[in-house]
C-alpha cells in the first residue's frame, strides 16, 4: 500500500534529521508532520519523501528550507485577546509583587507573542524589571523575531486584537511603517534574550515567573508534551504561571497535579507544590 511506504519514508526522514542535524521531530504529532512534509515535498519539487531526505542529507542548504515547513507558524499579535486581558487583570497583579521578573516565550516563532507581552508589560509599568527569554529551534524564526518586522497588512488585525485585550496605549506607538512593513521599536527588545532552545532535547535554563507557550505543544505527541510540561514546571518559580493555547490542556498530562487552574477558561495555570 503506497500510504504505508510514505509512513516509512517519513519515519526515516525524521530519524535522518535527528541523527545528522540533531533536530528531533520524532515525537511530533504524526498527522500534522505528515501534512507538512507532503507539502514540503510537493512545493520543493521532489517526487518522494525519500528524495527529499536524500537532498537534505547531502545539501545543508536544504535544511533551513525544510525547517521552514516543519516549524514556522504564522501567529498574530495579541492572538486570543481574552488571554492577554486575563494576564493583565489576573496574573500581573501577582507578578507586580516581585522586584524582578523573568518571562519565557517558548517557541516564539516570528515574535508576535513576544512583542505582545513586551507591550503588555510596558503598559503595566513592569517592562523595566523584566527579562524576557524568547526561544525557538528555528534560527530563521529567531532572526525574524529579533528583527520585529511584520507586513503592514497584518497590523490592522494586531491593532484590533490589542484593543480587545484591554490595551492602554495605541499599537502605533510601538512601530514605524516603512516600505510596506511595520518595524517594531528596538526598545521592546532591549530586555530580550533570543536563544536557540529545544523543548525536546534541552533542559531548564532559568527560573521563570511566567511561561507562555501557546499552540506549540499541540504539535507534540503525548510523550513529548509530558516532557515539555515537566520542563516548564521545573523552570517555574514557586507559584509561577504557565499560559497555554486556548485549546490546549494539562488534563491529559501526567504533570496535571503539578499545576492548579488559575484562569481555566484562558488555560492559565499556576505551579502547585505537591
Amino acid at each position: 500500500m503506497p500510504d504505508k511506504i510514505e509512513d516509512l519514508e517519513i519515519q526515516l526522514l525524521l530519524e535522518a534529521l535527528f541523527q545528522h542535524y540533531h533536530y528531533d521531530f520524532r515525537h511530533y504529532a504524526r498527522a500534522s508532520i505528515k501534512r507538512r512534509l507532503v507539502q514540503a515535498r510537493d512545493q520543493l519539487g521532489f517526487a518522494s519523501i525519500s528524495a527529499l531526505q536524500d537532498r537534505v542529507l547531502h545539501d545543508p542548504d536544504m535544511l533551513p528550507r525544510l525547517l521552514g515547513y516543519l516549524t514556522v507558524q504564522v501567529s498574530e499579535m495579541f492572538r486570543d485577546p481574552s488571554y492577554f486581558r486575563a494576564l493583565r487583570e489576573k496574573v500581573l497583579p501577582h507578578l507586580r509583587t516581585y522586584p524582578s521578573l523573568k518571562v519565557w516565550i517558548a517557541g516564539c516563532s516570528a515574535g508576535e507573542e513576544l512583542y505582545s507581552l513586551a507591550i503588555l508589560l510596558r503598559e503595566e509599568g513592569l517592562y523595566e524589571r523584566t527579562l524576557f527569554y524568547a526561544t525557538d529551534i528555528n534560527p530563521d524564526a529567531l532572526s525574524a523575531a529579533e528583527a520585529g518586522l511584520y507586513p503592514l497588512d497584518r497590523i490592522r488585525k494586531f491593532t484590533e486584537n490589542h484593543q480587545k485585550s484591554g490595551g492602554k496605549s495605541s499599537l502605533s506607538d510601538y512601530y514605524t511603517a516603512a516600505y510596506g512593513r511595520a518595524v517594531f521599536d528596538k526598545s521592546l527588545r532591549d530586555r530580550v534574550v533570543f536563544s536557540d532552545h529545544s523543548l525536546v532535547t534541552d533542559a531548564v535554563f532559568a527560573e521563570m515567573h511566567l511561561i507562555s507557550c501557546r499552540n506549540v505543544m499541540i504539535y507534540f505527541d503525548r510523550a513529548l508534551q509530558d516532557r515539555a510540561i515537566g520542563l516548564f514546571r521545573e523552570s517555574l518559580t514557586r507559584k509561577g504561571f504557565l499560559g497555554l493555547g486556548s485549546k490546549e490542556s494539562l488534563r491529559f498530562s501526567r504533570h496535571a497535579t503539578g499545576f492548579a487552574d488559575f484562569v481555566p477558561e484562558e488555560k492559565i495555570y499556576q505551579r502547585r507544590e505537591p
Partner: peptide
C-alpha cells in the same frame, strides 16, 4: 486531525 492511535489532534497550521 486524527492520529494513527485514534486520538484527536488540533493544529494551528495555515
Amino acid at each position: 486531525l486524527v492520529e494513527a492511535d485514534g486520538a484527536l489532534a488540533l493544529s494551528n497550521d495555515e
